[in-house]
Design a protein around this nucleic acid. Structure first.
Lengths: 147, 147
DNA sequence: AATCCTTTAATAACTATTATCATCTGATAA
DNA sequence: TTATCAGATGATAATAGTTATTAAAGGATT
């Protein structure tokens, strides 16, 4: 691992009161040293090359730990369950990051995406999708009721 | 079901050579008659109120059938596996709808999202996310090689 | 009614994820 | 150094979500 990455990892662990273990180091490295956004399984495979005895559960657990500490983020708020869209008209989505509900937002509510320059060569664009992420009405209500 | 919806359902089935069965009718209705975007399990629960003996597998199978026929769409190309993002700088994503790979796109490559008017009342916006969906370089290459 | 093809329901199988728990590790104090 | 202890790990069981299998039911056509 590059010294810079290593120092950052140590710093982040210290900041969040996490032991900077060998396993965590390699998991972190597997994430930041490569360009894509990988699944736990892929990260596991990568780390296993250095630490053959690591457990998949350790990968999952530490990813959760890192996320919870704010060291990492989820790429998308809607993994985990398959959602179907029966609306054939162009539209956007409002996504509640709390209850994961998804509702439609009129196409005209948002301006078009403007591309500055070009996309990476070789990528064949089909469309831009915009999601408005936040907390829905119901969740906001439930929250304020609690306090 | 509203007559209009029913007719549309019949038409769509005919168009795609699908038997317009009772089960399919109710599944379709469960999707279009309500505002949100539901999971197979939720659709199953809804349909069960009319057809108590329907099987969850039937729901899955017909959702796939509808999708394949183009009668419906998936809300997101990346449900199914959890992806982690270690890039703490603001950025967008390029998503390949074929191999499901996700790579970063510079924040400055795209202009800001413009909101015309207001979002539905009660929704507390955290951020807009933009995804560029399409076919990545590797998949395009693999495709052309085949033909 | 007999035949054929499609669809369905039940359920087994599989994959992704989470929980459990015994063991191990590293830090600190004795 | 050893004893202690909290936290981390690895093995694996448990669960949730999804897909595959298969026997039976339904519907159209002969």
């Amino acid at each position: 691992m590059r010294r810079e990455t290593y120092n950052e990892f140590r710093r982040l662990c210290q900041e969040h009161n996490l032991a900077a273990t060998h396993q965590r180091e390699k998991i972190y490295e597997a994430l930041v040293s490569r360009p894509g956004h990988y699944s736990p399984e892929e990260i596991y495979e990568q780390v296993k090359q250095d630490l053959p005895s690591i457990s998949l559960a350790t990968v999952y657990k530490n990813l959760k730990t890192f996320l919870h500490a704010g060291m990492l983020r989820e790429v998308s708020p809607h993994h985990g369950s398959w959602r179907i869209d029966a609306n054939r008209h162009p539209h956007h989505h409002l996504v509640c990051t709390h209850c994961r509900s998804i509702t439609d937002l009129d196409f005209d509510s948002l301006g078009p995406v403007k591309l500055h320059g070009k996309l990476p060569s070789g990528f064949r664009l089909e469309k831009f999708t915009i999601e408005a992420q936040g907390i829905c009405k119901a969740c906001t209500a439930a929250e304020t009721k609690q306090h």
